[in-house]
Simulated scan of single mutants.
Amino acid sequence: MTGFYGVYTFLGTFATATFHFNTAQTGVIFITYGSANFIANFLAGKFIALIGKKRSVTINGLASAALVLSLGIWGQHLAILLIILVALALSQGWGVTALTAAIVNIVPSNRSTVMSFNSAFLYYGLTLGSAAGGLLLTKIGFSAVTIVAAVALLSAVLIANALNHYSD
């Protein structure tokens, strides 16, 4: 979540500065992303059942890192930005669902506690990503935000794969 929210928090600022959009035009970018994420969540169960939770988490973490990084490289072109965001939303909608399914099975007898920790760390990641993203955006630029976000997402994949406590 640190990687994702580092980018997501400042996506509107990036779009406004890059494309000289007003608030309504910038909102269309978020509507596009949100719509794709909504669709991904409906399809996620079928994909997770097909390839498994752990593999889904890994594939989507790697895809998210690549897509976030590509925002910093090619995101200055509106059509490409929208394509990347749709792909990112599909990946993350599927990945977050897989991660949640995996997390609840780590300690089945304490699912509520595990999900509470998950929520707490989600918000902690949002806080860290937003703080780091804000510093990077103002000091270096949006590309730096995407690089650090990709590193955070790759780190999360490594950590998730090191946790052998969950399986499909």
Rank of each mutant, 00 (worst) to 15 (best):
135 L>D: 06
147 I>M: 12
116 S>C: 08
133 G>W: 03
99 L>Y: 11
168 D>N: 15
117 F>D: 05
86 V>M: 00
94 W>N: 03
127 T>S: 14
58 T>C: 12
144 A>R: 02
114 V>F: 04
54 K>M: 10
136 L>K: 03
157 V>M: 12
68 V>F: 10
108 P>Y: 02
114 V>M: 15
89 A>V: 04
102 A>R: 05
158 L>P: 09
89 A>D: 01
109 S>W: 06
119 S>M: 13
67 L>C: 10
146 T>N: 09
111 R>M: 14
129 G>T: 01
136 L>M: 08
103 I>P: 02
143 S>I: 13
118 N>S: 06
98 A>I: 11
138 T>P: 09
143 S>K: 13
140 I>M: 07
106 I>M: 03
148 V>Q: 03
143 S>D: 11
74 W>P: 08
95 G>P: 01
146 T>W: 01
103 I>Y: 05
102 A>W: 06
154 L>R: 10
94 W>Y: 09
131 A>V: 01
91 S>L: 03
86 V>S: 02
133 G>T: 04
67 L>Y: 01
60 N>C: 15
137 L>G: 03
123 Y>L: 08
138 T>Y: 07
120 A>L: 11
66 A>L: 15
119 S>R: 13
56 S>V: 13
150 A>R: 00
145 V>I: 15
134 G>M: 06
138 T>E: 13
90 L>N: 00
110 N>A: 15
58 T>D: 02
157 V>A: 09
71 L>W: 04
112 S>P: 03
60 N>V: 12
122 L>D: 06
119 S>D: 12
101 A>K: 07
92 Q>I: 01
84 I>D: 01
93 G>V: 07
163 L>D: 14
56 S>E: 06
110 N>Q: 15
83 I>T: 06
164 N>L: 13
124 Y>V: 15
103 I>L: 14
